[in-house]
Design a protein around this nucleic acid. Structure first.
Lengths: 187, 187
DNA sequence: ATTAAAATTTTACAAATGATAAATAATGGC
DNA sequence: GCCATTATTTATCATTTGTAAAATTTTAAT
């Protein structure tokens, strides 16, 4: 997906504002399994996904918790770094080879202070992510794991082809064994 | 808590920008149990809490799910209305008598288009809420209900005095019976 | 203070999910 | 294509959490 399209689906920008962003972006590519971001670091870049699939996960002692999948058109940020300049709590791992648009967070912050439309773009970006996260939190509370699995597949039909089941199980908040049970009961 | 203090803790505003907001705000008061917002409606106002405590809850067929508590200094918005102009999924109920600062959402949206600093205030507001929600989603996944209960009390020491246990149980994602079990095991 | 209503706890049992280990299937490197 | 590795499923049993109903405590109104 092209950068301008990615930016516009968050919030349509006038030509000039859009160019301020695109002019600061570099195209980069990484292979499968590359660790794009590590927890505990202040992450200095953010990325828009032109193609490929990634996951965000947090450490939980002995295992890891996948809490986000990103694919074409989505934005990768270490939220704590991006929002508060603090070390992030998430790792970002590439599940497929990816082509990304890279942007220095500092430069974007600078644009927020200069350009009204870009500040509103940043507002819309956070607002949209907030609604998605809040809906997931609520759904976690009143849907069974089986329902959440079915809905996830309905929303992302190609997820099964692109993501390992152990990551999907983690994302759903259940063990891989539980997910196996659910899958066998459906068929 | 005073309005200027509430606004500034999100993002410090220059005098002029701050007055653009405060000039559009009305002080209103409602009694305990008042339903401030209802799911399914497009909500036209947002509120800053000067004093009191509220909860947000969603309907889940036969029961309700409390997913947010708000008290002094926090902001009450119907996220779907505020962000997308769509009917909200949450009810807002007053758990105590409240004094609120009321602001028409439309006027705030107007200010976002006019004032760079206010647009950045709105951005920071969404970003902060996003981090809080994401952390809750993750904590739901790798902490036991007992841990989440203890942490909730540690962060909000007066919650037990102000909120019914059935709402706390719902917020934690467990039944009231489970919460009772947890409470009896702690002592 | 008394009483009715609501909130919370307790009990007993059922259902869902987790942990572990073994079996099977799929994948990637050579 | 073969083998080693990794991913997934299956089976068994333990633990957690839910459901329902009754008992108890708290709250609020008179």
């Amino acid at each position: 997906m092209q950068l301008t399209q990615i930016l516009d689906q968050v919030y349509p920008l006038p030509q000039g504002a859009r160019e301020k962003i695109t002019g600061r972006v570099r195209e980069v590519a990484f292979g499968k399994n590359h660790l794009l971001m590590r927890a505990g670091r202040v992450e200095r870049n953010l990325y828009f996904i032109q193609s490929g699939m990634v996951r965000a996960y947090a450490d939980a002692g002995d295992h890891e918790i996948t809490f986000w999948f990103g694919s074409e058109g989505e934005t990768i940020v270490s939220m704590n770094s991006y929002v508060a300049g603090k070390p992030g709590y998430e790792h970002i791992e590439l599940l497929e080879p990816c082509i990304l648009y890279e942007l220095r967070a500092e430069e974007l912050q600078q644009l927020y202070q200069e350009d009204l439309q870009i500040a509103n773009w940043g507002r819309k970006f956070a607002e949209r992510e907030l609604i998605k996260t809040e809906e997931r939190l609520i759904s976690r509370q009143f849907k069974t794991a089986a329902q959440r699995y079915k809905e996830l597949l309905a929303d992302n039909p190609d997820l099964l082809q692109r993501v390992a089941l152990c990551h999907i199980a983690s994302y759903l908040g259940i063990t891989q064994v539980s997910l196996s049970r659910i899958r066998s009961e459906i068929r």
